[in-house]
């Protein structure tokens, strides 16, 4: 019973930390997005709310919380309410397997820096792929339950889009898994120690995965389910108040998640740029854990800034262009990458 309570308490603490971190990251990303959009368009962006406009995202959320929640009369009210919960929930659940660093030794006990209740889970990548697929349900159900033609088209697009990029995404990841010999995210990161980042060994796989990630996050150039210009707002047309706010937060939480996955799988995750010994940090010490955590966060933010930068540079793909890209280009490229990786492993290892 004691150990059960201990596990429960530990999970609770980790849950609290990750929940706060993800929400803070989402707030920071909203601010970054608006500021970078401003700069790219020769404007300044929000700079009035708080110092440098840093409180802008909190003002946004406060406004959304105080707004009236309108549900269309003809909507399927239950599903209409559940859809944003699925979307936001999935965005959080993925953090269950994301390691923020290697283990810390406290009283000779290994504590892994992550939310995982099963420490150092060995199927991390599979879990992430499964969960992000579930996230599409939120958008599709939102589109269907709204009983609005634009929402429905947005939801359908989201489902069709998922089918066409997820295979390529999986194939790109298989290359990494072949190199590492493990599905565990911690193993994949440890394999990249000492600047052996997968982006250098798997450049083609990286490009495929990055492209597919943009589609998964529903961000420009693949924000077809939302497509404000043609679908009014796509799946979230009929949402208002905090239900819309949940979609909004989920978008940014997803962005942080995808950046974290890219950083883990291709950019060396929490491995330090120099070996820990040269910094004089002991294996398993708290300081080393902190250094790893900071390295990881820096990588995530660099990646998100890149994603925002792309959004304000590249126009939206047409629907058929996305299908063409997914099935006729990314899928064969993924297979080629797979063959190349296999040959490479055979030759060099």
């Amino acid at each position: 019973m004691d150990s059960f309570l201990y596990i429960l308490a530990l999970a609770g603490i980790k849950l609290g930390i990750v929940f706060t971190l993800v929400l803070l990251a989402a707030a920071a990303l909203v601010y970054l997005e608006r500021r970078i959009a401003g700069i790219i368009q020769d404007r300044l962006g929000p700079n009035r709310t708080g110092p440098f406009g840093l409180l802008q995202p909190f003002a946004d959320v406060t406004k959304l919380l105080m707004k009236e929640d309108i549900v269309p009369e003809a909507a399927n009210k239950k599903i209409h309410g559940i859809a944003p919960i699925i979307t936001l929930g999935v965005a959080f659940v993925v953090y269950a397997v994301i390691p923020f660093g290697d283990y810390i030794l406290i009283n000779g006990e290994k504590i892994y820096m992550g939310l995982a209740t099963a420490p150092d889970i060995n199927i991390g990548i599979l879990f992430i792929l499964a969960m992000t697929s579930v996230g599409i349900y939120g958008i599709t159900l939102a589109g269907w339950s709204s009983n609005n033609k634009y929402s429905l088209i947005g939801g359908l697009r989201s489902a069709a889009q998922m089918v066409s990029y997820e295979i390529a995404m999986g194939l790109a990841l298989v290359g990494v898994v072949m190199l590492t010999g493990s599905f565990g995210l911690s193993d994949i990161v440890r394999h990249q120690d000492g600047w052996l980042w997968n982006i250098f060994t798997q450049p083609l796989g990286f490009i495929i995965f990055l492209t597919a990630s943009f589609a998964e996050m529903n961000r420009t150039p693949f924000d077809l389910p939302e497509a404000d210009a043609e679908l009014v707002g796509g799946y979230n047309t009929e949402y208002s108040g905090m239900k819309f706010g949940m979609f909004f937060l989920a978008e940014y939480a997803n962005m942080a998640t995808s950046s974290a996955i890219i950083a883990l799988v291709y950019l060396g995750g929490w491995t330090l740029p120099v070996p820990a010994e040269t910094l004089g940090l002991e294996d398993g010490s708290v300081l080393l854990g902190l250094a790893q955590f900071v390295t990881f966060i820096v990588k995530i933010f660099a990646m998100t800034i890149f994603i925002i930068w792309v959004r304000w540079s590249i126009p939206r793909f047409r629907y058929d262009q996305l299908m063409h890209l997914g099935w006729k280009i990314l899928l064969p490229l993924g297979l080629i990458n797979l063959v190349l990786t296999a040959v490479g492993i055979k030759i060099f290892a």
């Binding site: 401003g38 700069i39 790219i40 368009q41 404007r43 300044l44 792309v310 304000w312 590249i314």
Partner: peptide, 19 residues
């Protein structure tokens, strides 16, 4: 072409702002 587009938006960073 994407790289070119990104370069274009990056250059905006150093331009005077209209605000």
């Amino acid at each position: 072409e994407i790289a070119r587009g990104l370069g274009l938006t990056l250059r905006r960073l150093f331009r005077p702002k209209m605000t």
